[in-house]
């Protein structure tokens, strides 16, 4: 029947993407999950051996460092980016004439590749010729800023570059949020004689809770996936002082030839991402249906 065929067209159009989604996303996740339960080394093996890879993973000091780094980097990156982004948004919200230009300046790093960002900051923070040398040449001979090559501090160097790249984006999100607050509420508060800072802290910021949440989700997601920035800035070093789960996984997969470890570390990464994202997406989808 003609109408029957017509009714199938939308499904036919969606079908290739759906099949791709099933194979390349969900099928592949399944494959990785499976391999993470095997003794695969250089080549994948498909006999299940329980959680042996995960045991090995969690007893590996290098993975320990990577998870610790993720925690330090993630917390600092998210907190500083949020605070800085919020501060910038509030400052920009004071009816500044050059707002457009400033916004452009604060946000442009988001258009850059993490590799470019890493390259630039690596040069700026390089102790021999960068900031350290510059400050010393001003007469502060004992000034030291060697974070990129200092195993204890290198992770903080990555935080600086990460914040530089992402805080402008948080600013843009918050600024849009500030602008979407109902103007009449603010007018009413002004008429009531409530000081400006109170209007922000008591009225505007609480109404932006959903934006805080999405900013958090995006930043957390960025932090967990961070790979290029570390590669470009420190290469995971010195040693593996700045390894993150993403670089650990890559090293296992492509330089160490340990597929089992690569797969299990990828699964842990996905677990962390989903622990953060799934409740959020679930509530979003549900809110939409109501």
């Amino acid at each position: 029947m003609v109408t029957w065929f017509e009714n199938q067209i939308p499904k036919v159009v969606l079908a290739p993407s759906f099949v791709a989604l099933l194979i390349f996303v969900y099928g592949f996740i399944g494959w990785t999950a499976w391999v993470s339960l095997t003794r695969s080394r250089l080549l994948p093996k498909y006999d299940l051996h329980g959680t042996i890879q995960y045991k090995k993973l969690f007893s590996s000091p290098r993975w320990d460092t990577a998870m610790e780094n993720l925690l330090v980097f993630g917390v600092l990156f998210i907190v500083i980016s949020m605070c800085l982004g919020l501060l910038l948004a509030i400052l920009l919200d004071q009816k500044i004439r050059v707002e457009g230009a400033l916004r452009t300046i604060y946000l442009y790093p988001m258009a850059l590749s993490m590799i470019v960002t890493g390259t630039a900051w690596k040069w700026i923070m390089n102790p021999g010729l960068g900031i350290e040398a510059m400050v010393r040449s001003w007469g502060f001979e004992s000034f030291s800023f060697d974070w990129v090559i200092n195993p204890d501090m290198a992770i903080y160097a990555i935080v600086i570059a990460g914040v530089w790249q992402a805080s402008g984006f948080v600013m843009a999100l918050f600024l849009a949020g500030l602008r979407s607050v109902d103007g009449e509420i603010i007018k009413a508060a002004q008429v009531d004689g409530i000081p400006n800072w109170r209007i922000y802290s008591a009225i505007i910021l609480p109404s932006m809770a959903p934006i805080f949440l999405s900013a958090f989700i995006v930043l957390a997601h960025l932090a967990i996936k961070s790979f290029d920035l570390v590669i470009a800035l420190t290469g995971g070093g010195p040693g593996y002082a700045t390894d993150l789960p993403a670089t650990y996984m890559y090293a296992m997969a492509f330089s160490r030839g340990d597929l089992g470890q690569a797969a299990s570390s990828a699964m842990v990464m996905m677990g962390v991402v989903f622990a953060i994202v799934v409740p959020y997406l679930y509530s979003e989808l549900r809110a939409k249906h109501d």
Binding site: V25, T32, P44, H221, P245, A246, M270, V273, F274, L281
Partner: peptide, 11 residues
Amino acid sequence: FIPFQVVLLPM
């Protein structure tokens, strides 16, 4: 939202 690491090997 998946971290691409999880599809890297099979891809």
